[in-house]
Simulated assay, not measured.
Amino acid sequence: MTGADPGRYVGPTWLSGAAGDPAVTSDRRLLNRRPPRSVDELNQLKIDDSWRVLRIQSEFVAGFDALLHLEDTVAVFGSARTKLGSPEYDLGIDLGRAIGEAGYAVITGGGPGSMESVNRGAKQAGALSVGLGIELPHEQGLNPFLDIGVNFRYFFARKMMFVKYSQAFVCLPGGFGTLDELFEAMTLVQTEKITLFPIVLVGREFWAGLVDWIRLRLVDEGMIDPTDGQLITVVDTPAEVVDVLEAARAAREEQ
């Protein structure tokens, strides 16, 4: 749903034009809670939260059903602000195509920019192209290069799907959302919630400062173990990404 239509997604539902308040997302309603000021407000809050639990449950059920049959899947993250025709966009196409040609399905955040470019490349390779969108005030909708698209209200439900159905995380240059997914993956690997799970950063120049800070400052200050700094692999090319994925797949098959 792109182009001139000013509508937006609310969970899986598309609202056209001015329907609803685009600034008030489901996550915001859940997290920006104020204490009830009366018995009536308290009772209404109990009712609202009970229905909200069912809505959250329905997001997990919908995601599990849609992604149940995925195998050998790689999640790729990157900026929604990457411009069509830029070197970064072209890198995303090449990356999606290379991952697809290596026999993997691809999952992205389903939006524009780098996410769109990776899905486009996966489609060009004939690989399964999946997008997991999120309800945002400025949401532009799912990109048109998806075989499966699921839109979520809640970030935590969406993040669960990335982790549950992916065998690797790959990060193109991006902003807060990309960093959020990166550190989520690093935490899960460090705490052994997930194992044999490669985390690959694409673009040595872009990621150099962050990687040095992790491997030097955090280690020197005793905030992480020296081995924790090796949880990420930094590369420049799609071919290098595929090499990391193939090594991890071989290790899984040996178990």
Rank of each mutant, 00 (worst) to 15 (best):
residue 1 M to V: 13
residue 7 G to C: 14
residue 10 V to H: 15
residue 11 G to D: 10
residue 11 G to S: 11
residue 12 P to E: 15
residue 15 L to D: 10
residue 16 S to C: 09
residue 18 A to I: 11
residue 22 P to M: 01
residue 23 A to I: 08
residue 23 A to K: 14
residue 23 A to H: 13
residue 28 R to V: 09
residue 29 R to T: 15
residue 30 L to C: 09
residue 31 L to H: 07
residue 31 L to A: 11
residue 32 N to T: 04
residue 32 N to Q: 08
residue 32 N to I: 04
residue 33 R to E: 15
residue 37 R to M: 14
residue 38 S to L: 13
residue 39 V to F: 14
residue 40 D to E: 15
residue 42 L to V: 12
residue 44 Q to Y: 14
residue 45 L to W: 14
residue 49 D to R: 13
residue 50 S to V: 11
residue 51 W to E: 13
residue 53 V to K: 04
residue 57 Q to N: 11
residue 57 Q to E: 07
residue 61 V to R: 05
residue 61 V to A: 12
residue 65 D to H: 08
residue 68 L to H: 14
residue 69 H to G: 11
residue 69 H to A: 11
residue 70 L to I: 08
residue 71 E to N: 07
residue 72 D to A: 07
residue 72 D to P: 00
residue 78 G to K: 01
residue 79 S to P: 00
residue 79 S to N: 00
residue 81 R to P: 00
residue 81 R to S: 06
residue 82 T to V: 14
residue 83 K to C: 04
residue 84 L to H: 08
residue 85 G to W: 11
residue 87 P to F: 08
residue 87 P to T: 06
residue 87 P to D: 06
residue 90 D to I: 12
residue 91 L to H: 05
residue 91 L to N: 04
residue 93 I to F: 03
residue 93 I to S: 09
residue 94 D to L: 13
residue 96 G to T: 05
residue 97 R to I: 05
residue 97 R to K: 13
residue 99 I to S: 03
residue 100 G to R: 02
residue 102 A to M: 01
residue 103 G to W: 01
residue 104 Y to Q: 06
residue 111 G to E: 10
residue 115 M to S: 04
residue 116 E to L: 05
residue 118 V to D: 01
residue 124 Q to A: 10
residue 126 G to H: 07
residue 129 S to M: 01
residue 132 L to E: 12
residue 132 L to C: 14
residue 133 G to M: 08
residue 134 I to H: 04
residue 134 I to D: 02
residue 137 P to C: 09
residue 138 H to K: 06
residue 138 H to T: 09
residue 138 H to V: 08
residue 143 N to Q: 10
residue 147 D to M: 04
residue 147 D to W: 10
residue 147 D to G: 12
residue 151 N to E: 05
residue 153 R to A: 08
residue 157 A to K: 00
residue 157 A to H: 00
residue 157 A to G: 05
residue 158 R to F: 07
residue 159 K to I: 05
residue 159 K to F: 06
residue 160 M to S: 15
residue 161 M to S: 11
residue 163 V to M: 12
residue 163 V to N: 03
residue 166 S to W: 00
residue 167 Q to F: 04
residue 170 V to C: 02
residue 171 C to E: 10
residue 172 L to P: 02
residue 177 G to I: 01
residue 179 L to Y: 06
residue 180 D to M: 03
residue 182 L to E: 03
residue 184 E to H: 00
residue 184 E to F: 01
residue 185 A to W: 01
residue 186 M to F: 07
residue 186 M to S: 11
residue 187 T to G: 07
residue 188 L to Q: 03
residue 192 E to Q: 12
residue 194 I to M: 05
residue 196 L to P: 00
residue 196 L to V: 10
residue 200 V to I: 12
residue 206 F to P: 09
residue 207 W to V: 13
residue 208 A to P: 00
residue 213 W to M: 10
residue 214 I to E: 02
residue 218 L to A: 10
residue 220 D to H: 12
residue 221 E to S: 12
residue 222 G to I: 09
residue 223 M to N: 10
residue 224 I to V: 15
residue 228 D to M: 01
residue 229 G to D: 09
residue 229 G to S: 08
residue 232 I to E: 06
residue 233 T to R: 08
residue 234 V to N: 03
residue 237 T to K: 02
residue 237 T to F: 04
residue 237 T to R: 00
residue 237 T to W: 04
residue 239 A to Y: 10
residue 240 E to Q: 13
residue 240 E to H: 09
residue 241 V to R: 03
residue 242 V to H: 02
residue 246 E to H: 07
residue 248 A to D: 00
residue 250 A to K: 13
residue 255 Q to L: 06
residue 255 Q to C: 01
